[in-house]
Nucleic acid binder design. Structure first.
Lengths: 119, 119
DNA sequence: TATTAAATAGGAATGATTCCTATTTATATA
DNA sequence: TATATAAATAGGAATCATTCCTATTTAATA
């Protein structure tokens, strides 16, 4: 089943690949795979909660890490780094101050990563 | 100049309108305006820092509020609310722990807004 | 094995956005 | 003011990621 190949492709790439990249990658194993199949399986994997989708400048990236975490995008090398926070008090802040009920969030920082940042 | 009309259209809409919405809105004043003009002017306004762009499910929304603030998206009515935080210690957390240099960020919470949330 | 359901390839269709070009409008300069 | 130059525009074609459609293949089940 191609769905598993799509899944392992995402998991093995420690990056946050696009549908296009995944397509090319899986194609190495199954040359006849089609774009439709990749997208359909990506959708199903997202629905099952096995992967996450990250919209970046209007194009979708996929993330095999479904544990709660955040993303840092380097403006120079365009790498996407994961990071975790010690406390996420902004959730309770918003619930208390604005009386919304928060069920999810996405935090994305941008800047220069430690590799590009030549101090 | 149409650029100003595009700008005031965004400012007057207290929402976070899409290019499509802005196009329709400005069209009321200038029926001959084209999509190309709207997009070109939106791009220039973003470049000048007069508006901000928010990517949401792969389509661009525009925000006339350029002061630092965050967004809450209601899953039920799809409204986008602005909110501010008292402290944003996640920036220093990431700079200290991951040694990246942070120059900007985007925080987006999702959930049920106080209007949809019938307690 | 026969029957039914799910998955697939391939390509067409869609929709947001960008690009291109001839024309119009604004700006600067003599 | 008249003229040259630059910026802005309309309109539509082109692009690109994504979705949709359909005939065919594969898997699951009785």
């Amino acid at each position: 089943m191609q769905r598993e190949l799509v899944h392992t492709s995402i998991m093995s790439s420690k990056d946050h690949p696009t549908a296009d990249w995944i397509f090319s990658d899986v194609k190495k194993e199954i040359p006849k795979i089609s774009f439709g199949t990749v997208y359909r399986n990506l959708g199903q994997l997202v629905e099952k909660g096995l992967i996450r989708i990250i919209q970046l400048d209007g194009i979708a990236h996929y993330d095999g890490n479904v544990a709660p975490h955040n993303h840092f995008i380097c403006n120079e090398c365009n790498s996407i780094y994961d990071f975790e926070l010690d406390n996420e008090d902004f959730i309770s802040q918003v619930e208390v101050k604005n009386h919304h009920h928060v069920s999810g969030y996405q935090l994305m920082l941008t800047g220069t990563c430690n590799k590009c940042n030549i101090n």
